[in-house]
């Protein structure tokens, strides 16, 4: 159990996917201008990450042992179809949520956090339960980073910023200080 909690905490804050491993930078920079959108994007990501972890475990255990060189191709196909299924399900079940998520839903396919999760899970040889905790931690960490970033960016909209810094440069410099803050968690739990 301690091991599972450690995997969860590690994926969420110590090795935060976005701020220390640079996975999922595109939505981090693209969808982080408002807290509400950031939160929704985060939740959609948690959902897809968890499903991906399940599928990757299934593929690794039952199919890919025989054909390891097909790993990358099968992962990307599975992720693309998963996102497609999620999209159809949300559209059917809750059209409002579907409209709110808009273009960001299909874009999860090319979010490197999702493929990254599947690959890390394979490299570290996580079991089913470990994989699930890893995915949940990673998803929550992603959401945390997105919401933190969005709350800072909402503030910068009201302040005077030199024209030359406006846009991505400012966002990256903010991300640097956020990442520095998360660096404070480094070494946490390294004994276990």
């Amino acid at each position: 159990m301690g091991n599972l909690i450690w995997i969860f905490i590690s994926a969420m804050v110590v090795n935060n996917f976005t701020l220390s491993m640079f996975l999922g930078i595109c939505p981090f920079l693209g969808v982080s201008s408002r807290i509400e959108t950031a939160l929704r994007m985060g939740v959609a990501n948690i959902f897809v990450l968890t499903l991906t972890s399940l599928c990757a475990w299934f593929l690794n255990t039952y199919i890919l042992a025989a054909v390891p060189f097909l790993r990358l191709i099968s992962f990307i196909v599975v992720i693309a179809s998963l996102v497609q299924i999620t999209e159809m399900a949300i559209k059917k079940l809750s059209p409002t949520l579907f409209r709110q998520l808009g273009i960001y839903l299909p874009l999860i396919t090319t979010n490197c956090a999702v493929l990254g999760l599947a690959i890390f899970q394979t490299n570290r040889e996580y079991g089913l339960l470990q994989g699930l905790f890893f995915a949940l931690g990673a998803g929550l960490g992603l959401t945390l980073a997105l919401v933190l970033m969005a709350s800072i960016r909402e503030k910068t909209e009201l302040s005077t910023v030199p024209a030359v810094c406006k846009g991505t440069a400012l966002t990256l410099l903010i991300a640097a200080s956020l990442s520095l803050a998360f660096g404070g968690f480094a070494g946490l739990g390294s004994q276990s």
Partner: peptide, 15 residues
Amino acid sequence: VLPPGGFLTLGFLLL
């Protein structure tokens, strides 16, 4: 060489 440095360097490059 740590993660924040990546953000910082790219930020200054874009600047």
